[in-house]
Amino acid sequence: MCPYYSHIKYLNAGKNLYDRIDEVVMFIDDYFKPQKSDQFFIMDPYFNVFTALRDPFTNNKLEETIWSSLIILMANEDSSFSIITNEQMSIGIPPSKVDFPKSESKTVNIEACYYPNGVFYNDYTLHDRYILRKNGDDVSGLHIGPSLTDIHNKDVSITVFEIKEAELALDNFVFIWDQCKLNKGWRKS
């Protein structure tokens, strides 16, 4: 169950490329089977949280980007999303909060942290893209080839983590998250 969505094959079959994006989004949603109180951890160096998430939510264009569509789809009551990215963002002090659209009538917490490569912890750099889900003791995860910020002209491979690898990735995510939080934006000048 590690699908590969070929751009060229889809295009040559005369299919609508929007559908391919929907297929990717639905695969991720189907794999995680989101429930109440899920915690999602998203690592993507190219995830611009302002343009890909906050602005679509603010402008009530929830399908504007792949990220906004996916997060709206996976969010349930009491869900939380923690996002680490290389894209510059922070309203002063990280992690920044992104308000979930009120039209969805759910309590969902979204936080994102901007992690400039090599600045916060030794020379560590972000590279991988993955999504992890934790609910109670259950941890699962998907590795996604390209950034979901834009896949319209890219092949997309998705790899399912074994449980142990998902747990390891989660440990790593939490460590980087804590480093990111420790380095407050206002402390740097």
Partner: peptide, 8 residues
């Protein structure tokens, strides 16, 4: 700055 201080 900070980036995104004002929404669009």
């Amino acid at each position: 700055e900070p980036y995104g201080l004002f929404y669009e």
